[in-house]
Amino acid sequence: MESLNILLLGIVTRKREGTKVAYGRHESFYLRNKWISKGLKHVDNNSTFFYEKDNFEKIGLGKNMVRSLRFWLTALNLVQEENKHHTLTPLGKIIFEKDRLLEKPATIAILHSELLLNRGDTATVFNWFFTKYKETVTTRAELKSAFKVWVEAKESKPVSEKSLDRDIDVLIQLYTKEADENDPEDSIFSPFTLLHLIKEERSGDKSELIRKNEVNYDTTNLTAFYYLLLRYSQNEKVELIQLDEIMSNDTLWGKVFNISKSEAIDILNKLATDEKYPLEYVRTSNLDNVKIPQITELEFLESRL
Rank of each mutant, 00 (worst) to 15 (best):
E2P: 00
G10D: 14
G10V: 00
I11K: 08
T13D: 14
T19N: 15
H26N: 03
L31W: 10
N33Q: 14
K34N: 14
W35N: 04
K41W: 01
H42Y: 04
T48R: 14
D54N: 13
G62R: 01
V66M: 00
R67E: 15
F71E: 12
L73M: 14
N77T: 00
L78Y: 08
L78G: 01
K84Q: 15
K84Y: 14
H85T: 12
H86Y: 15
T87Y: 15
T87P: 00
T89D: 10
I95V: 15
R100G: 10
L101P: 04
E103C: 10
I108H: 12
I108Y: 10
I110T: 10
H112Y: 10
H112N: 10
E114I: 02
L115H: 12
N118V: 08
T122D: 11
V125F: 09
Y133W: 06
A141K: 14
L143H: 07
S145C: 06
K154A: 04
K154L: 13
L164F: 12
D165M: 02
R166Y: 13
L171V: 02
Q173Y: 07
E181T: 05
P184E: 05
E185N: 15
D186E: 04
T193R: 11
T193F: 12
E200I: 05
E201F: 11
R202C: 06
D205S: 13
D205H: 13
K206I: 06
K206M: 11
N213H: 08
D218I: 03
T223A: 05
Q234A: 09
V238M: 01
E239N: 13
E239C: 05
M247C: 01
N249H: 13
K255W: 01
S260V: 01
L268Q: 03
K270H: 01
L271S: 06
T273L: 13
E275Y: 05
Y277T: 13
L279Y: 05
E280A: 02
Y281L: 06
S285Q: 09
N286F: 14
D288V: 11
V290M: 07
E297Q: 14
E302A: 13
E302V: 01
S303M: 10
